[in-house]
Nucleic acid binder design. Structure first.
Length: 186
DNA sequence: TTGTGTTTTACGACCTCC
DNA sequence: GGAGGTCGTAAAACACAA
């Protein structure tokens, strides 16, 4: 995907200089396409502002480039091809670099948002527990293990739910502020 | 220094939409 | 089918304690 002629030309010229490194990532003529597999590590050339290639190094974007990209991201998280080309031309970057930067930026933004949501839920939960302790200190002191018929509210944070699977031992039909308990966390 | 943890850039695989 | 999205991850760049 997104494999351009320019990419091939860059890699071809690089492979002449670094045959050991790049032979494995250039498609061999007539070669049978290998089955799907994890990406083989490659060290691609990175286009520099003057159009030359900086070999074998990952080039950090300049502060100015990052600022411009951040401003653009602030306007709109999605990147139409026209805007991508315009930004790339303004910043002296490959459009592919701009696309990758937006992909990574969206991922960071999503992680940050999930973290905030998790913290909000955690705070809400702590507040509820504190309220419960204050209103009913005796039953609140009973340990989870001692609860014979616990109902476990199950709330997964994140898409897969693997990382933060929270269980809340609460009695069945518990209502808080008129809302069924489980609904608070879903 | 250097070992180690974190952030950033880049890419492959796969998915969705038109 | 192609373009562009997400997800997972490799590896370079960077930060920083020991």
């Amino acid at each position: 995907m997104n494999h351009t002629m320019d990419d091939d030309q860059n890699l071809a010229s690089i492979s002449q200089l670094y045959p050991d490194v790049y032979t494995q990532i250039l498609p061999q003529e007539g070669a049978v396409k290998p089955p799907k597999r994890r990406r083989k590590k490659s060290k691609r050339a990175v286009a520099t502002g003057d159009g030359s290639n900086c070999f074998l190094r990952k080039r950090k974007l300049s502060d100015e480039q990052v600022n411009m990209l951040e401003m653009s991201f602030g306007d709109e998280h999605k990147l139409e091809s026209e805007r991508k080309d315009k930004l790339a031309a303004e910043l002296g970057l490959d459009p592919r670099q701009v696309a990758v930067w937006f992909q990574n930026r969206r991922a960071r933004w999503k992680n940050k948002r999930l973290e905030e949501e998790y913290n909000n839920l955690k705070n809400s939960h702590e507040n509820v527990v504190a309220d419960k302790c204050r209103l009913d200190p005796i039953s609140s002191s009973v340990s989870v293990e001692a609860n014979e018929t616990p109902f476990f509210g199950d709330y997964n944070v994140g898409d897969d739910g693997d990382d933060y699977n929270l269980f809340y031992p609460v009695p069945e039909n518990t209502y808080i502020d008129g809302v069924e308990w489980a609904n608070i966390y879903i």
